[in-house]
Design a protein around this nucleic acid. Sequence first.
DNA 1: GCATTTTTGCGAATGATTATCAATCTCCTT
DNA 2: AAGGAGATTGATAATCATTCGCAAAAATGC
Lengths: 142, 142
Amino acid sequence: MTLAQDMTAQMTAALRKAGVRVTRQRIALLAVLVGADDHPDAEELYKRTKRVEPAVSLATVYRTLSVLEAEGVVQRHSFEGGGARFEATGPAHHDHIVDLDSGEVFEFNSDKIERLQEQIAAELGYDLVHHRMELYCRRRKP
Amino acid sequence: MTLAQDMTAQMTAALRKAGVRVTRQRIALLAVLVGADDHPDAEELYKRTKRVEPAVSLATVYRTLSVLEAEGVVQRHSFEGGGARFEATGPAHHDHIVDLDSGEVFEFNSDKIERLQEQIAAELGYDLVHHRMELYCRRRKP
DNA sequence: GCATTTTTGCGAATGATTATCAATCTCCTT
DNA sequence: AAGGAGATTGATAATCATTCGCAAAAATGC
Ligand SMILES: [Mn+2]
Ligand SMILES: [Mn+2]
Ligand SMILES: [Zn+2]
Ligand SMILES: [Zn+2]
């Protein structure tokens, strides 16, 4: 059993326990999400899912993404320009760098920044629920 | 001459110099933006501008906001949920805290975080062009 | 297998934003 | 002050991503 298969197995079990029905199209989309190493949008996820499970519609992709987001299994990002992009929730939090020229998305993590965010919220009397932090960059000119 | 009037005077001069025609509706919208101390969306800016200059349309508000954004005079924000919100560009950069319960937007600034962002981009071989950083918070439970 | 309750696919609806285009206005030149 | 080239406007249609409505199909529990 591959790692991706194991992850989906665990996830479907969790979903079932949460009262969410595990359908063919949900399994397929989940597999696509777990297997993706990028940040595709709904249309792209639809295309990839259709390859595995032709009996899926774009509406269902959108609906399932919302369900999976509510369950905490996927995360939705709204980078500048264009629609929402998605990724399976991984073990570790990270933020994103967007290459303005290629559109590619990279990931990074800074404990220092994470701590400072908490601190800033706390100083103003707030609890930080979540945040958004995106660096829009260009390759450095040599 | 009030401070807001002075600011708009300077701005219109700069716009004219940049080849942008200064119309009644642009002056009015600019005044509204400079006078605002919040982060209104296009519809709200339309309402406020109409009070001062009834001869304005929502389409023109959108178009003018894009023009002013291109000139660097206003900034566009896309917080979670809802459409774009705008503010006149101030003297100092700042980031935002969004109160998840009230929807209110507050501002903050952290030189440390700004520096860390530059550093992270640089380490990955990138030049930071701009960034987005928003803290979604709830008032701390006492 | 059967009943109950969800989920799906299709297409229509939505909401924010942009495009079209003839009429109007700005601003530079006489 | 008048003229005219070219930019801007208002009204409305068009876009685009996303959501909705509903009858048919599928998943779960017994
Ligand atoms: Mn990511
Ligand atoms: Mn602000
Ligand atoms: Zn983070
Ligand atoms: Zn900042």
